[in-house]
Simulated scan of single mutants.
Amino acid sequence: MRPSDAIAHVRHLAFLGLPSEVVIPRMLEALHALIGSRINGFIWSDARGLPTNIYSPVIYMAAREVMVGGYHLMQRPGELAIEDLINGPRVIDNIAPWRDSGRLERTVLYNEVFVPSEAEQMLDLVLRDRDGPKGIVFLTRGAREKSFGLKDRRILLGLAPAFLRALRVGAPTSADPDADEPAEARFLEDGGSESMIVCDLAGEVLEMSADAHVMLDCANHGLIAPGQASTDLPGLPAAVKRALAAGTLTNTPVTVRSIWGHFRFRAFPTAMASGGGLVVLIRQLETLSLRVIDRLRDTPLSPRQREVALLVATGHGPDAVAARLGVSRSTCRDHLENVHARLGVGSRAELVAALVG
């Protein structure tokens, strides 16, 4: 993918209006294609710059230790903390003064989180608006890898408005499984990735893959229980445990909502050395708009045509598309005709089938 297309893809993801916890992980995937990094992630913060949540799939457990705050217990006065980066004087590369002075290598944050993850180099982008800081994007590379350059900084800085938009427009995911959602936020039963959890018959987690660990934490709203270390195995959500106790999970899947999206659980009996057990499959469901935007990524459409195609494929009528884009209905119709011609479809129904089915 050309850099210009990857940048457009990040901006289109921010355009979706999904909760930031759902869309920012996908924006980070696209960012990785633009700026090669060993690890990237995002830390949400409150108005004081204190971390409130984190997403980083590669250094997930080490990063969660930062969120739990255990490293604070080992810090010496004046050492670098995450809030120092978020409240730093710069928009980009607030870690530079610590790195350039040699103070970074003497901090607990560096030695307990960065070094074990081979993430000795870091580039950060702080996101702020009139109400204060919102969070920080971070990218890392190993000590022997190429340093982040001026081009990397320009690309990251240019994407700041997209990340801010994602933080502003996305409404939190409802915890009510029966609540209505806009069409573009609808979750698809046949999409998303799936991982495996091994439990005993009482539903206590015995073993899981690293991917399942991340998904299960996210299904539990990405929160670590008081007194729980981030390396402990998380438990199944309460709704899943109730279904196991009732004996229905092997026949009827259970879908759990959290701030990170929708997660579907289903169970299968299995034989274990200690007796009977269960394999629980957890699937993070895909939203309709994310599926469509992924399928639009490699099409020959212009950025505006992709926006029109996205809105049409997610159920918006002509008036709604025109209003959303701030154009006349006739202009919207012209864009849609061009979309049909470039994708080789003859109707709205064929367009939806190509992008959703």
Rank of each mutant, 00 (worst) to 15 (best):
R11G: 14
L13G: 03
F15W: 13
F15Y: 15
F15P: 13
G17F: 04
P19D: 10
E21D: 03
E21P: 08
V23L: 14
I24Y: 06
I24M: 09
P25I: 09
R26D: 15
E29R: 05
L31P: 00
H32Q: 01
H32R: 08
A33S: 15
L34R: 06
I35N: 00
I35E: 07
S37I: 04
R38W: 11
R38C: 06
I39H: 15
I39N: 15
I43M: 13
I43N: 15
W44F: 15
W44N: 03
S45E: 10
D46R: 06
D46G: 03
G49N: 11
P51M: 07
T52H: 12
T52D: 07
N53P: 02
I54P: 05
S56Q: 13
S56P: 08
S56E: 11
I59C: 11
M61K: 14
A63K: 05
R64C: 15
E65D: 09
V66N: 02
M67I: 14
V68G: 05
G70E: 08
Y71W: 13
H72V: 15
H72T: 15
L73K: 14
M74A: 10
M74W: 04
Q75R: 08
G78R: 04
E79R: 05
E79G: 01
L80I: 04
L80G: 12
L80K: 01
A81C: 08
A81N: 10
I82R: 11
E83G: 13
I86S: 04
I86P: 05
N87F: 03
N87I: 00
I92H: 02
I92L: 08
D93A: 03
N94K: 12
N94G: 12
I95S: 10
R99N: 04
R99Q: 04
D100W: 03
R103N: 10
R103Q: 07
R106G: 01
